[in-house]
Write a protein that binds this DNA or RNA. Sequence first.
DNA 1: GCATCGATGGTG
DNA 2: ACCATCGATGCA
Length: 193
Amino acid sequence: MKRRSKKLPLTFFKQPADIVARELIGKILVHDLGTEKLRCRIVETEAYMGPDDLASHSSKGVTNRTKIMFGPPGRAYVYFIYGMHEMFNIIVGEAGKAHAVLLRAGEPLDGWHANLTGPGRLAKAMRIDRSHNGKEIIRGPLHFADDGFRPNQIIATPRIGIDYAKHWVERPLRFIDPASKHVSGKRYKPPAV
DNA sequence: GCATCGATGGTG
DNA sequence: ACCATCGATGCA
């Protein structure tokens, strides 16, 4: 049976990035394309804590690329990297603080067969690209929902691929559902039983 | 299973 | 000259 789900309100996204990143684990990302509705369970996120965070693009200040990060929460920040991948973030926190949450992995729902393990694959499978950059993603076809599911456990680890970020490298700002088989990376192994 | 490498283009 | 990645390749 399918649980009833509710859209997450804007107030949810006004919290700091580390809070939102943790709370998004177990929630649902929805992209309504009209002909079909793509849904996945979020199992991995990362928090980027604003200009002081040396891993965050916002640490470069306001540029053409990062200006969206300094705007109001609830909008998408989608950027292109390594010549082939689009990364999907949501701007959170107070406007101007440039907090953001990167969506790193999800589990396909509704019998959908897709690989959403890793940020590039998640964005591609969910059909999110640079055309969504700056778009409001609370009430529109792209939004987040809560169906009442709660992971048994949520674990924080260091973030992936930010070795240049000095003392921010080891900060536990990556959040995962360790029970999911769709988490990316190799930094966390569940303890052997 | 794990390590290494190259694709490929936006960015400052 | 990098880079919030991924898939292929080599070797075990």
